[in-house]
Amino acid sequence: MKELVIVSGKGGTGKTTITAALAALAPNPLIADCDVDAPNLHLLLGPEIQSTEEFIEAKVAVINPELCTGCGACEVACKFDAISPSFQVDPIMCEGCGVCFISCPADAIEMHERLSGYIYASETNYGPMAHALLLAGESNSGKLVTRVRELASNLAKKHGRKLILIDGPPGIACAAISAITGASAGLVVTEPTVPAIHDLQRVLELFQHFNMPVMVLTNKADLNIQKAQEIEEYCHQKGIPVVGELNYDPIMYKAVVAGRPIVEYAPSNMLSKGLKAIWKKVEQQLDAFQEA
């Protein structure tokens, strides 16, 4: 089984619209949305939810005011500024580590389970899909990403799918690390802007850090042809394959409003043609990585 994770470092480069297009182009994929903070892929693929699972991973401290003596031991012990001087727990700041629980001499603190989100197994026109939603103010997005990937892998086995396409989160920290580690390869969607190039370098270093193969796609390439060229040269120097370039075309936004992958919304548009060629290269590259 192959797992391709699509990331960008910088947000808004077009990860999700490109993932949706690849999902429509790939034969029999299994699709996973691992941007659990701000998932958008479902808006283009229209999943029908088959089953929902609660994501209960973290705990939250609850102080019983009848038993609390106001000694302040919990406030001193808490490293996350989650306990107020009046001994109220701020659930948004509480990590659920339980340090307050073991510090309390009056046994006034209980650790309660907290519902942090939902994990969905769905069907789409393009293949089965694993996705999730993190509830407002909840942390643990890295662990939720891990759960989505496990579900994706189980669904892939169940439905006999050989390729998992993962829409990853922006950034390079816990959620991104959870989305990429153990995958077969990465596809970084970048754009020829100064900030995106800065972020591209960091995300490529992340793949190098985990010793994972990676390829690059430059979106909105005609915004700055010179910088697009720089990206290509940079990747060439590093031995990283560039699978293609796409031009900046506001029709992308129209496809998003229509809620459809661009290759279906505007199949004869240059972007759609470009994406078809890119998908062929991605497939070849995945095979090449596997052989190496």
Partner: peptide
Amino acid sequence: CPPGVSCPMV
């Protein structure tokens, strides 16, 4: 701020 709605943004 960083994107998203989880701990780094909060």
